[in-house]
Nucleic acid binder design. Structure first.
Ligand SMILES: [Zn+2]
Ligand SMILES: [Zn+2]
Ligand SMILES: [Zn+2]
Ligand SMILES: [Zn+2]
Lengths: 167, 167
DNA sequence: TCATAGATGTTATAACACTACATGTTTCGA
DNA sequence: TCGAAACATGTAGTGTTATAACATCTATGA
């Protein structure tokens, strides 16, 4: 049996060093995003907004086809390609990330810097962290090997606190 | 245009802190692996051996279907499921890893500890490193958030030295 | 208003991964 | 040595994730 994550499972401030995502409401985040997109001169269209909204409301990362199912309009579910196009937009502007290890997508609540995600292997729950240590270590290892660092979400796998309690 | 990685591109000893993979020949690695499997009481069958051999000889991580194409036997290419089964075995015993960010598989040359891979976004080349810093940082972040660390390859994305030279 | 760029609709297909079940092969104890 | 059991592979089909190609619609600004 596996822990089923619920909304806002992980509140911020668990430690001083590792900032968890701010637990501001979805509404505020959406409003901020609207403003951000206007400022950038890009269009947060209704489709893109709805995809982001579903991601923000989800308890864990969602697959593209999960999103398609969730976004029913006039009795018809959204076409996969439409979801992928919306995701491309959101990812390009740092509003969402793809978690390759799970073929899933998650809204980004930090919005700046190189994020990292702690992902539970059992229940799939993901916690976004913006940790200076991690970013710095990754950057140093890359440059030491002659690699040029690129901003890309880091996926760190483990077992979440709730799933450890399940015997 | 993009750099096409060739065999043994990255030789060891680039820095003292970060051990690159040993550049021992494929033959020796295979012989060692044979011995290791005998010792463990598991069977490195011809199919599994050939899959490992192709991975070891590849310049970069290969997809399961690439492997199927490479492993033609009596005019017929290997069935995908056969490749996946061989990969399952190799991964289970630490002889290979799956790189989720590229849907590709790579032979592991370290064989112990939690490995990390530097992956070039342009050419797909991957360099295995066994870096104490990275492992330690990851472990610390996980435990700080209450996560139980699990041995899983870490994928770090950047641009490889060769691809930086291409103008 | 009209040209243009950007966004979406529609259909089809590519790419990746696995299920289910039959058959073959090795191993080991009776 | 025989046969059961475990392990490995063959074969066919399907599930899942992601994209190509092209048509149509919509917002925007000259
Ligand atoms: Zn969990
Ligand atoms: Zn949890
Ligand atoms: Zn490269
Ligand atoms: Zn290279």
């Amino acid at each position: 049996m596996v822990h089923t994550p619920s909304l806002q499972h992980h509140l911020p401030g668990e430690t001083a060093r590792f900032q968890a995502s701010p637990a501001s409401g979805t509404g505020k985040i959406l409003a901020d995003t609207e403003a951000l997109c206007r400022a950038k001169g890009v269009r947060l269209t209704p489709i893109r907004r709805r995809v982001l909204e579903v991601l923000l409301g989800a308890a864990k990362p969602l697959g593209a086809y999960d999103l398609a199912d969730a976004l029913v309009s006039q009795g018809r579910r959204m076409a996969p390609i439409t979801v992928y196009r919306a995701l491309d937009f959101l990812i390009e502007h740092g509003l969402a990330h793809r978690l390759a290890s799970r073929n899933a997508y998650i809204a980004s609540t930090s919005g700046h810097g190189v994020p990292a995600f702690l992902i539970c292997e059992d229940c799939g729950e993901a916690t976004e962290i913006t940790c200076t240590d991690v970013a710095e270590t990754v950057r140093r290892v890359l440059t030491a090997q002659g690699y040029q660092p690129l901003a890309r979400a880091l996926e760190i796998t483990g077992q979440c606190p709730h799933c450890q309690d399940v015997h």
